[in-house]
């Protein structure tokens, strides 16, 4: 059954803007308007404050855990135009890198799939997207996409590392040629897809998805389970959540499906690990879970209300399948 396994009192001095657990679900990172990032050990229902990371000079908007194969690494971005990458070494958290290349608030950070190494995408209100790649020895290589979104970029999310269109012939036994791809959303009401071919390492705008009538607040590329369909969720100030899918191996034909129109801004979407459930949250202070039914309709399967109750999930769907 769905059950609350932990309730963490973060003791932040101001409102929380993001909370995220690491790869294994043992550590929780939170960030807040009080300019701090906190890390808690939440194993076995406990909550031990592991670190209180100070370094930002403004509200911290988002955190992101890197894949554990690179160590215990966390990125955070803030109103202070900075991106800080924190690393745990021998039990102590320290700044690993501080990126100050943006000219306005950095709103979103997202680590790329581990297949590409340590690579972080950062979206900022200066309209640019930065890609920070660890090149070893404490060096970070910076690529910047200027004017990715007019007015500002609000969210970035990486595509899973899968072979582009698995139907394309490829010699057996060779390492598939992966393409780095991510999606971004911005104040130009657009969702944009970007890719980088290995040859030159340059980022190019691949697609421009237009459906929202106001700022796009968040985008989420669904994890792949090996199917050749790519799925992206986007949400906006206009209260709409769209599910974008592309069956086309070349990745050009995207179709939008309206998940729901909410009454207030929707500012966060998150996919479950198998990509079949979407968690949606917004200005109405509610969290809803959505699942695609057999006939392709999206249905709300739960409602987390006001932080009070647990997810009272309807598990019928699951029952039926069994």
């Amino acid at each position: 059954m769905v059950s609350v396994i932990n309730t963490v009192d973060t003791s932040h001095d101001d409102m929380i803007h993001d909370a995220q657990m690491d790869y294994y679900g043992t550590q929780l990172a939170t960030c807040s308007s009080d300019r701090s990032v906190k890390i808690f050990d939440v194993k076995n229902g406990g909550q031990i404050l592991v670190a209180d990371l100070r370094g930002h000079e403004g509200p911290v908007w988002q955190v992101a855990w890197a894949h554990p194969m690179y160590g215990n690494i966390l990125a955070s971005c803030s109103y202070d135009k900075k991106v800080i990458i924190w690393k745990e070494e021998n039990g102590t958290w320290d700044k690993m890198y501080e990126y100050t290349g943006h000219e306005s608030s950095v709103n979103s950070v997202c680590w790329g799939p581990y297949d590409f190494g340590l690579i972080l995408a950062c979206g900022s209100s200066d309209g640019a997207i930065s890609l920070l790649t660890y090149s070893g020895d404490g060096q970070w290589d910076v690529k910047k996409i200027s004017n990715a979104h007019t007015i500002g970029c609000n969210a970035v999310s990486w595509a899973p590392a899968v072979v582009p269109g698995s139907l394309i012939d490829q010699p057996l036994g060779q390492k598939p040629n992966l393409i780095k791809r991510f999606v971004s959303g911005g104040c130009d009401n657009l969702v944009k897809l970007w890719n980088s071919r290995e040859e030159d390492g340059q980022w190019k705008e691949d697609q421009k998805l237009e459906a929202h009538s106001d700022w796009v607040r968040d985008v989420g590329w669904a994890p792949s389970i090996g199917l050749p369909t790519s799925t992206i969720a986007s949400c906006s100030q206009d209260g709409r959540v769209f599910i974008w899918t592309c069956d086309d191996p070349s990745g050009n034909a995207w179709t939008a499906k309206l998940l729901h129109k909410f009454n207030d801004v929707v500012w966060h979407v998150s996919w479950s690990i198998t990509g079949n459930i979407l968690a949606v949250s917004g200005g109405d202070n509610k969290v809803t879970l959505w699942k695609e039914s057999v006939d392709g309709q999206w249905a709300c399967i739960s409602d987390v209300n006001k932080g009070q109750g647990a997810v009272s999930a309807i598990t019928e769907g699951q029952q039926n399948e069994q």
Binding site: H268, S281, G283
Partner: peptide, 9 residues
């Protein structure tokens, strides 16, 4: 954002 939900782990 003052609320949010994320699938983790």
């Amino acid at each position: 954002r003052t609320s949010g939900a994320r699938f983790c782990g």
